[in-house]
Design a protein around this nucleic acid. Sequence first.
RNA 1: GGCUCGUUGGUCAAGUGGUUAAGACGCCGCCCUCUCAAGGCGGAAUCAGGAGUUCAAUUCUCCUACGAGCUGCCA
Length: 500
Amino acid sequence: MKIRTRYAPSPTGRMHVGNLRTALYEYLIARHEDGEFILRIEDTDQERFFEGALEIIYRTMEETGLDYDEGPDKPGDCGPYVQSERVEAGIYMEYAKQLVEKGEAYYCFCTKERLESLKQEVAGKEIVVYDKHCLYLSKEEVEANLASGMPYVIRQNIPNEGTTTFVDDIYGAITVENSELDDMILIKSDGYPTYNFANVVDDHLMGITHVVRGNEYLSSTPKYIRLYDAFGWEPPVFVHLPLITDEEHHKLSKRSGHSSFEDLVEQGFLPEAIVNFIALLGWSPEGNEELFNLQQLIEAFDYKRVNKSPAVFDMVKLRWMNGEYIKNLAFDEYKKYAASYVKQIFAKEEDGLCINADGVKFSEAALDKIMDLVKTRIEIFPDIPEKIDFLNQLPEYDVAMYTHKKMKTNSENSLEVLKETLPLLEAQEDYSVDALHDLISDYIAKKEVKNGLVLWPLRTAVSGKQSTPGGAFEIMEILGKEESLRRIKVGIEMLEAANA
RNA sequence: GGCUCGUUGGUCAAGUGGUUAAGACGCCGCCCUCUCAAGGCGGAAUCAGGAGUUCAAUUCUCCUACGAGCUGCCA
């Protein structure tokens, strides 16, 4: 039989990474076996409905590459794919009534007040166990209540004796006492089904073979099993996933900065890297490889290798992985993301040219060089500005920076090097890296000193920073002759003042 | 409180009744090097605790501890 999985989010906001991983695994399980993957919108909670959430879902599926075969915007044979539309079609009520007729469910007219009175406090928490009060209403009473328009819900009738067992493909056999299972509500008083009910009905009607969902449903799954049994339906394969936590081993929260896919993208992470990273949270491939694109994940994904224990969402490793993806990006692709971060450091932009605080103009080619320099040195795009800010303006730096023990430089020999190279650089027209390299190498060779003795002062003068992406030649090439010379002269003045 | 699930280095994790208990991130060191990265090489670091089964348990069983989830007219 062909595998069919579904991703069934509620449109309540941004897509949480836990949900995204569930969607990913559902997608992967289906695609690995050449099966079908469908999208179903579970908007049965009218209060939590969030305006734009549907668009977020579509966009996220698009950006992550999780294409589905059927969904609200891709009609198939099992529509509609939005639960509120299915409510209008009367689907859930019809099935609920079937259950009532079978005695597997019943109308409940209990008021809020009565339910309140059932509340008990245990260990600081309020819990309600429904007492099946309305199960014992006579048929006449029920008819009369319904006729009078009294509000009602429909509840599942679970016996107080016996046990219910199901087998989860990851966690194995799970058994619970029926007496532990509450008579959960199937149809709410507004006529909408609860998640619990709609899920079972839709999964069956849509031919879902593998139900993949978070661990938090593990302990309520026996109730679903009883629903399948009550209908006489074959239950699907259940695949429950371990949860994802923050560094404190708590459920991911908004505060921790990794709560949603969109947050991550806004922080400068690439969708592909996010997908790759979350795929490895709760699942591992057979080999040692860790970098997988979606296609490779489809091939490698054997859901039997999903593990049981919760996983911490490690931002540090995500950053590393994102850096790997950035390094592997083709330059043109990389440029699309990086350009705005490079441009933002400059004072202004005129006629497509970036102009720095001192009026130095940077060509398109110079910008490309900057981006290239920074490509292997960042993990996320927002890392760029602070690495190249010195290009906008020579920072105020301490002369002490010219003194470097390992380079064997000090303020005296640094001054000497700058003064000696200045005329050479003034005479030089070609400021390409290669040409500068030849020029200075020649000077170094004649002077018979180590590279560092010359290049450290030059790089310092031209950048004013302890560390920079690229070396003296690269920086001079980008700054151009005029600005490079100006900065070297500034260095000479500083050193002369210090040595005086 | 009850129920359910989980526990291999700081983190992601492989693995098995007998192994020197993989690999990755991070950390540390070395090499390369004009700085920072990248790259290369190396290092420290793990089977929650206790019983039992067994010739042998990280692996099987039980208990304890700890953690998480559920216990909604939320999903």
